[in-house]
């Protein structure tokens, strides 16, 4: 199963959250590939804490591969190469977790016919090998988004299942922008249909993830003044109405990730250790990530709502 992680704006926590989802799936025994198609700013190396491994493969990132300068893209076994001590001690019976890094210092590039064929080659090979392939896409209506829309509509990919996660923060601007990324003219749906996707099927394969959402009911906010609490409640409700109005209401939301300092500042994996031993992460955050990871392959959460 291919899972594309998209967002309209930067700063939605798309990369760090999708990396956490990949990590959760691998913990559950799936073989997982994380593909860094964020050509403008490849960040996966930092998220998985494999900086040295990436430095050694500078010339063979996905960028070089797609442009035909490298015959095979570099591959990094995260469990073995990470410098994160908790990840290094990966639990018994977990699946493989493998990173396909972007080129350091790569930029967006126009995709030609051959790059598209190479993209299809890569996705098909990964699909034959991995249970879940998480593809992190550059923010906005990028070449990366165009390329994977074209790739998934390619006749060779007709038997490959793919799903989309659109990440956005829980603010007025972000809700409108996320809706625009999918529903506006030249948005994902429009461009997808223009490339040969079935509109309904594509719509049914897109779900939203609300990131950095302050939960007014959580313990974190229990000490705020009554005025603040009331204001938070009403703002939250207003945002829900806005989201529904923009066709990204609760029925197409796969999950909500709470506002979590560790995701915002450390931008790395949240582990059980962070919740149980050092207690620097909230268990609600870990739970939310586990839940979204599980729902990726739960068919009842997908399709036309």
């Amino acid at each position: 199963m291919l899972v594309f992680a998209a967002s309209d704006k930067g700063g939605t926590g798309r990369s760090v959250t999708s990396a956490n989802l990949a990590y959760q799936r691998a913990l559950n025994g799936d073989h997982v590939a994380y593909v860094d198609f964020d050509f403008g700013s490849p960040t996966a190396a930092a998220v998985f804490d494999v900086p040295d491994a990436v430095r050694g493969t500078r010339e063979r990132g996905l960028h070089s591969y797609l442009e035909g300068r490298a015959t095979e893209p570099a591959v990094i076994d995260v469990w073995r190469r990470t410098e994160n001590p908790v990840l290094r001690a990966w639990p018994n019976q977990s699946g493989r977790l493998v990173l396909f890094p972007g080129d350091a210092g790569g930029g967006e590039f126009a995709t030609d016919e051959e790059a598209l064929e190479r993209c299809v080659d890569l996705l098909l090979r990964l699909n034959a090998e991995f249970d879940v392939i998480m593809v992190d896409l550059s923010a906005g209506r990028s070449y990366a988004v165009d390329m994977v829309l074209a790739a998934t509509a390619h006749p060779r990919m007709r038997h490959v299942r793919s799903r989309w996660l659109v990440f956005h923060r829980w603010t007025r601007q972000h809700v409108i922008a996320a809706s625009g990324l999918v529903h506006d003219e030249h948005g994902i749906l429009d461009s997808g249909v223009a490339r040969g996707h079935d509109g309904d099927a594509l719509r049914g394969s897109i779900r939203f993830v609300r990131a950095a959402v302050p939960d007014p009911d959580s313990a974190l906010w229990s000490r705020v003044s009554p005025a603040q609490a009331a204001w938070m409640q009403s703002t939250d409700e207003a945002l829900r109405r806005l989201a529904a109005e923009y066709a990204i209401g609760d029925s197409v939301v796969l999950g909500v990730v709470p506002l979590e300092p560790i995701l915002q500042w450390r931008e790395q994996m949240i582990t059980e250790e962070d919740v149980l031993a050092t207690q620097i992460a909230n268990k609600e955050t870990l739970k939310a990530l586990e839940e979204i990871a599980r729902k990726l392959t739960d068919d009842t959460c997908w399709g036309r709502p």
Partner: peptide
């Protein structure tokens, strides 16, 4: 047709 009967690693 890219419909492998099982996932396997080359």
């Amino acid at each position: 047709d890219h419909r492998p009967p099982l996932r396997s690693r080359p």
